[in-house]
Simulated assay, not measured.
Amino acid sequence: MSPDTRNSLYVWAVMLALFGLNWVLVRFDLTPSAPAWLHWVLSCVNLLVFGRYLLGFWQRRASNPNNPNNPKDPPG
């Protein structure tokens, strides 16, 4: 396994763990003493991390020279 693949798996695991933890805390109201704004902040951070991941994935796919939809390499 290449280091890039291993790092990607670690990022996925951490992202899913944080998202799951936040979801469990909000869904089951396990932190009644925490202010409501903290849940919103955690949710926004999770959405930003996931959005950043999708943007990076899209940029890698768009810059891939083997991508058949790459506008830099016209067919034929």
Score class of each variant (00 low, 15 high):
S43T: 15
G76N: 12
W12S: 13
V45Y: 00
S8D: 14
N67V: 06
D4W: 13
T5A: 14
W58R: 13
W40H: 14
R60H: 03
A62K: 08
L30A: 03
S63V: 07
N67A: 00
L16Y: 03
L55P: 08
S63L: 05
N70T: 10
R61Y: 02
A36W: 13
S33G: 08
L38R: 09
H39A: 15
Q59Y: 02
P75T: 07
H39Y: 09
P75N: 06
L25E: 01
G76D: 11
F28V: 01
L55F: 12
L16W: 02
L38M: 04
R52P: 00
P74K: 01
R6K: 14
N22D: 09
S2C: 09
G51T: 02
W58G: 00
P68I: 04
S63Y: 08
N46R: 00
Y53N: 09
L21M: 12
L55I: 04
V26E: 14
L30I: 08
Y53P: 10
L18C: 12
V14Y: 10
V41T: 12
V24S: 04
R61Q: 06
F28P: 01
S2F: 06
P71F: 06
L21K: 08
L30Y: 06
P35E: 08
W40L: 15
N22M: 04
F50P: 01
R6Q: 14
V14D: 06
L42R: 12
V26Y: 10
M15G: 11
V41N: 11
P35S: 03
V14K: 09
A13C: 05
V41E: 06
P35F: 02
W37Q: 09
F19E: 12
L38A: 05
R27L: 07
N64E: 10
M15V: 06
V14Q: 00
R27P: 05
G51M: 13
N70H: 11
A34W: 03
L47R: 04
P74S: 09
P3K: 11
L54M: 03
